[in-house]
Design a protein around this nucleic acid. Structure first.
Lengths: 337, 337
DNA sequence: GCCGCCATTTACATCGATGTAATCCTATGG
DNA sequence: CCATAGGATTACATCGATGTAAATGGCGGC
């Protein structure tokens, strides 16, 4: 025998299918007696609602998607934990997708097949272009995390990246460092996270009356350990080597520290290192890593809140919201803490 | 206007709804002309099938669940990457769930609400009891990763944990270590991963004619950095301190290394350390960590294959399969590599 | 010129749950 | 004792896609 349907429960309890449905949905006008009988029937048959049927009728799935570039970048894994906890707390389920930072996969999360399963999407974009969101189907609510070009095209939650990078740079300056490199920095690309943080770095240098040496702003192909290691080696081979590295995420910082160690440089003695994200590894690495800690629970909570509000509102709702989450610099051994 | 339905496409193309459905499902007896007309209508209206309707009719979702203990344990994030890549390659979608290693959440993945969305579940259990799978609804295919008590209760993919732990221990013995502790070890608990690896450890010691000092087998509350650090401190305070730590995952190893460093012990000089899982961090930490590398792509591929085969088969299918995935010891700095 | 075959297309019922609106029923007031 | 309010329950249609079986139509063969 297949799974019991609502009709089977109804027959067992001697009521109509709709009454069972009413019990399931906590409709108020159901007598205590009927309610009990139905509950017993449900238990006896081991009935559970069929999501497909419900979704078809209601037009909602109760599932939201969270699309991040890479799960094995710890920041995204930690963020995903918080988002999942928050959606669960609010009675929804999270469908976690990995985009690999590839534009076509980011688009798919918003427009494509996977979007079918969901009532809304939280996307942490890397490659998305401004025009990609232009013709967007506004029936599917979207919240963007981190940076993206077109402000106002969708709800958006991020830390103040310019300020965060400025503060991190000021910290290094205050410690007497003068040749500070940016690993993963970018002066010319789109208005993304790298760009904004590099701007904050420039601001700090300028405010201190220092020039911004272009050769110290080094883009990387990806934000992983190996990229940080390679970048550190490149930078240390410059005629005038840096005395500090501002790494735009913690994996780059950890990779850089490893490469410096292999090549005989001491951290923080010869070179100080700062990262971004405050992943768990930075509290246990040798040395521990100074890092900009974004308020991950706050980002997750706010993103889920915004998304569920849009979903509940139904229509396109009000204008896009821009939210700034908190951050703080945590000084650890890699910059003398 | 809402989203276009199959009926809208049918009207636009001047055919019946069923013909559109036939085109969508690549039914062979559709004239080239009609097929083209329908395709054009689909493009013109921006139609995409409604998953709920299809699922209701077909009884399949095209989604499989992958339930792991913690996403921020890098091993599970890396494994999830492989599983997601594999399911995508085979035309399915993965719903990633986090159980926190809690029994009720593991049960929910197999029996509960989330299982509703899926055609089958891949579960990496921590707390599941033998009896939990006894009354299982066999209509939902299940593949277990890692260890679980009742062999034969579901398909199962794992490395040979006993052998792997024995080899790791033999490596430490061969390097002259004699007081080898097991961080996360367990001699009395259920037949889980910890237990099996501890057995392998015992085998190696016994084969070398050494006693198995019970105080060196130290269970941990969780398999995270902090637990490794705490365990290392406990062990180093013993009257007869260990000269090597076999840590049952890499996070424990990394945490232990950090604690040893803080307390002034050198690794590998005073204490050698070995981990399990070969997470990316072990290739970049200071020192790099010797570790048992399971064949993660192989595990993922085989698990997905087994699950999709069961799903395609429909019924309960044949008896449960036990698959052993490969592993190898990678020697790095933490044990003198 | 009629028949039957086969490729193509369609009408209709169906999957399971729920919104709508109608019906039934009981208690209360006049 | 009837009217009526409103709580409790139900019949029916519906969400969107697809399986079934039947209808349509073109073509070759006798």
């Amino acid at each position: 025998m297949g799974r019991p349907r609502i009709k089977d429960v109804a027959e067992y309890a001697g009521v109509s299918a709709k009454t069972v449905s009413n019990v399931l949905n906590d409709y108020e006008h159901v007598s205590e007696q009927t309610r009990t009988a139905v509950r017993e029937a449900i238990d006896a048959l081991g009935y559970r609602v069929n999501i497909a049927g419900r979704q078809l009728r209601r037009g909602r799935t109760g599932v939201i998607a969270l699309a991040v570039p890479e799960l094995d970048i710890a920041y995204f894994a930690e963020l995903a934990k918080h988002v999942m906890a928050e959606t669960e707390r609010r009675g929804s389920t999270t469908l976690l997708l990995e985009t690999g930072g590839r534009r076509e996969r980011e688009l798919a999360a918003v427009h494509g097949f996977d979007a079918q399963f969901t009532d809304g999407v939280i996307l942490s974009p890397l490659a998305l272009q401004p025009r990609d969101l232009a013709g967007r189907d506004t029936r599917l609510p979207l919240v963007l995390l981190g940076e993206c070009n077109p402000p106002g095209s969708a709800d958006h939650v991020a830390i103040d990246n310019v300020t965060a990078a400025r503060e991190a740079t000021e910290h290094l300056l205050a410690r007497g460092r003068r040749r500070i490199a940016v690993v993963g920095g970018d002066l010319r690309g789109p208005q993304n996270t790298s760009r904004l943080r590099t701007v904050g770095y420039q601001e700090a240098l300028s405010a201190a009356g220092l020039p911004v040496p272009e050769e110290l702003v080094l883009p990387v192909p990806a934000f992983r350990w190996a990229d940080g290691a390679a970048a550190a080696r490149t930078l240390m081979r410059l005629p005038q080597r840096p005395d500090a590295l501002l790494c735009l995420n913690d994996h780059l910082a950890l990779g850089a520290v490893r490469a410096l160690h292999e090549d005989g440089w001491s951290v923080p003695g010869d070179v100080e290192v700062v990262g971004f994200d405050d992943i768990e590894a930075t509290r246990f690495s040798i040395p521990t890593i100074t890092t900009v800690a974004p308020d991950k629970p706050g980002i997750a909570r706010r993103a889920v809140e915004l998304l569920l509000d849009r979903i509940d509102a139904g229509g396109p709702g009000g204008p896009a919201v821009d939210e700034t989450a908190g951050h703080r610099l945590i000084v650890r051994e890699s910059s003398g803490g």
